[in-house]
Design a protein around this nucleic acid. Sequence first.
DNA 1: TTTCCTTGGGAACGCCGATGCGCATGGGAA
DNA 2: TTCCCATGCGCATCGGCGTTCCCAAGGAAA
Lengths: 156, 156
Amino acid sequence: MDRIDTAILKLLAADARAPVSQVAAAVGLSQSACTRRIQALEANRLLRGYGARLDHRRLGFRVTALVDITLGTQVEEDLAQFEAAVGKIDGVVECALVSGGQDYRLKILCRDLDDYERLHREHLGRLPGVVTINSSFVLREVPTRGEGDALFGGPR
Amino acid sequence: MDRIDTAILKLLAADARAPVSQVAAAVGLSQSACTRRIQALEANRLLRGYGARLDHRRLGFRVTALVDITLGTQVEEDLAQFEAAVGKIDGVVECALVSGGQDYRLKILCRDLDDYERLHREHLGRLPGVVTINSSFVLREVPTRGEGDALFGGPR
DNA sequence: TTTCCTTGGGAACGCCGATGCGCATGGGAA
DNA sequence: TTCCCATGCGCATCGGCGTTCCCAAGGAAA
C-alpha cells in the first residue's frame, strides 16, 4: 500500500468501470503494472468488489428509513439471533450494532410509507428481543464527499 | 422498466464488473440487446454509475461513527449553510436531514478514536448552528441483503 | 392492409485486459 | 565492494469482450 495504490482505489471508488488504461495513465503507470496492482488489491481483499450505484427514487423507492432498535437483552446468543433475523429482511440495506445502550441502527429502503408500515408490522415488530423501535425518515440527502475522498483525502 | 431491466440492475448491483455477456446470458438476452438496455438505464439515470467496494478496516479506518446533530434553527438558509459546510468535511460519507426534530444524521469514517476526536473538535464543533452532537460508534456490522435484493426482492 | 416504431439477434470491428518475458533497481549477505 | 535475489515496471502479444452497425420480427395506429 503506497501512494499509487491509494490513488488507484480512489479512482476506482469514483468510477469502477473506468478502463484500466485510463487509471494507469492517471497514476503514472503502464497498463500491465496497473492491472497487477488491482489484482493484488483484490487478492488482499482491500478491494472487495464492485457495485452499481442505483437511483432509489427513480426506481420508485422514495422512502429511506433510519431505524433505531433497542433490545431487552445483551446476551450474545440473543444478539446473534436478532442479527440473523434482520439479515433476511428485504429492504434492510444496513444494520450495525452501536455503542451507547445496546442497540442497533438500520437503514431501510421502501417504496412509500405504506410499504414501510407493512414492513414494520410484519418484520420489525416480530424481531426477537426487541424493546423499542424508533423510526426516522430521510427528508433530504446532503451531498458529501465520496468514499474515496473520505478515506484518502479530498483534492489537496 | 420491466422484469429484464430489474434483473440487469440487480446483477450489476451485485457485481458491476461482470461481463455484459454474462449478464445477458443470465437474463436471457443477447449481448447487443443487453448493452442497449444498460445504456438506456444509464441515460435515464436509473443507473448513476459504478463504484468499488473498499474494505475500510483493512485500509486502516477502524472507526465508523454515526453522529446525530441537532440545529438551533429551522430556517432554510441556515440549513443550507450547515449542509454546505458538512459537504466539505473529509470523512463524512453520508449526511441526511431526517424527520423528528430538526436534525441531521451523519456517517463518518475515521482511522481511530483520536482521529475522530480531532475531526469532532476541528470540524463538527465548528459547524454553524449546531446545538447538540451525539456520537455512536459501530461495534459490529451486521451482514444484510444487498441493495439489489432490497430493491427488487431477494431469492424467491 | 400498410406503415412506422420498437426491440432483439447476428456479425464484424476495434479496444481492452491478462500474461509472459526481459530489464532495472534496491536491499542483504559474504 | 561485489554478488545475488527479490520486487516491480514496461513492452509486446493474444484472447476476449464490448460496441455498433444492419436486418428481421412483432405490435400499434392510420
